[in-house]
Amino acid sequence: MTDALLVLVETINDYLPILDGCGLGRIVAPTPASRAEAIQLHGERIRAVLTRGPLGLYAEEIEALPNLQIICVIGAGYEHVDLQAARKRGITVTNGAGVNASAVADHAMALLLALVRNIPNADAGVRRGEWSKVMRPSLAGKRLGILGLGAVGLAIAKRAALGFDMTVSYHNRQPRSDVSYSYSASALALAGASDFLVLATPGGAATAQLIDKAVLQALGCEGFLVNIGRGSVVATADLIEALQQRQIAGAALDVFDDEPSVPDELKALSNVVLTPHVAGLSPESTRATVQMVADNLAAFYAGKPVLTPVPMSG
């Protein structure tokens, strides 16, 4: 039987032919049921897995794939891939950090504009026959804080500083020596120095609920939050309370704790803009991310170093 690549990602079907050169047959299993069935029926054949950070690959699944050699993650985050289980088996893990940065940055700015300028509510009002003119802030001259200045954060910073004349500051695990943006020593300090706070950091234990009640209070009643990173970065209950009590002015969210489930409390709020984790989706970025997977697989099976290895130390 043909060795196989198990594809768990649900949004790349049109680009799967890019992977044909890797020499593996494809098993496409984008739902929990089809995923479990594929692992049960074809576990012996599966040599590679293609997944996303929120979809992950868990220890019990890795154990059920005795011939698994490589796990390829589309996008930067790999928070639900069990790296310890992969490391014990000597399985290579790669990601696609930075490949879809332009699309994500575009979406972050679109969310920020829609939120601050109240576009969804204005549109809905006109459709209802209303003609309500509400004064809203502009972006020019405002302070933008970015949590996570990787490829996506840098792309957002460039758009904000050069396109909207905003002052940019950021918080990272370490300051960057290659940028002129102001560094904040913590998420709390960043929020206090920001009118708009954009979350562009990966998920995982290191960033879990980093944005909590204290950070939201520091952002303040005129501050806006945009999250295109991971839902886990925000303490959702604290965010809902802050929005309900107008402790912050509003939030725009593309990511959530338990996708595709979104809390009803968020849906009920007029000061929230919601999108279904689509920031990284564009024809250009999707093609590029799948091509990165193909390039990593080609390098791996040619006995060469993969292009974007996930650190496996620890």
Rank of each mutant, 00 (worst) to 15 (best):
R176N: 03
H107V: 01
S102R: 13
G21H: 11
Y15A: 08
K158D: 04
L50M: 15
S34Q: 15
E265T: 04
R35C: 08
G23V: 10
G314A: 15
C72M: 11
N121P: 07
D257I: 01
A302P: 12
R47H: 15
Q217C: 07
D212T: 01
D123I: 10
S182W: 02
M312N: 11
D295A: 15
A114D: 02
P283W: 08
P276Q: 07
A235H: 01
M292P: 03
P263G: 03
P276K: 06
Y183R: 07
E241T: 07
S285C: 11
S313Q: 15
P137D: 04
G280K: 11
Q244K: 13
V7W: 10
V168Y: 05
S313M: 14
P260G: 06
G145Q: 01
A110N: 05
A205H: 10
K304E: 14
V278S: 04
K158P: 01
D82H: 08
N67K: 14
V7Q: 08
I12W: 03
G231E: 08
A251Y: 00
L41T: 14
I27G: 15
S102Q: 14
L307E: 11
F300D: 05
A214Q: 11
S180H: 11
I211K: 00
R26A: 12
A251H: 00
L253S: 05
T207F: 02
L65Q: 14
S285L: 15
D295V: 08
D3W: 09
A185Q: 12
M135W: 08
I71W: 12
T289F: 06
G223C: 01
L57G: 07
L68N: 13
L115F: 00
E44A: 13
L274R: 04
P175G: 05
L16K: 09
L297D: 05
T11F: 12
I156A: 01
A249I: 01
A33N: 11
A38Y: 12
I18C: 05
S34C: 09
I12G: 04
A59W: 07
M135I: 12
C72E: 13
S169K: 03
I71P: 11
A205V: 09
G223S: 02
T31G: 12
P260S: 06
I46S: 08
P311M: 12
F196E: 00
G56R: 13
P202Q: 05
H42V: 05
G43K: 10
E63N: 08
R117D: 02
G280P: 13
N118I: 02
V134R: 11
A122L: 07
R35V: 09
T236W: 01
L216V: 00
A251E: 00
W131Q: 10
A187Q: 03
S186H: 05
A140G: 08
S186Q: 06
S282R: 08
R136M: 07
C22M: 15
A122W: 02
P305K: 11
G25A: 15
I39K: 14
E241L: 06
P54V: 14
R159K: 14
R87K: 15
G163D: 02
V9L: 06
L225K: 00
S184L: 07
A288R: 14
A200N: 06
L243S: 06
T207Q: 03
A76H: 07
G204E: 04
A4H: 13
R87V: 07
L111W: 01
A157M: 08
T289D: 05
T92P: 09
E61I: 09
A294G: 05
E284C: 10
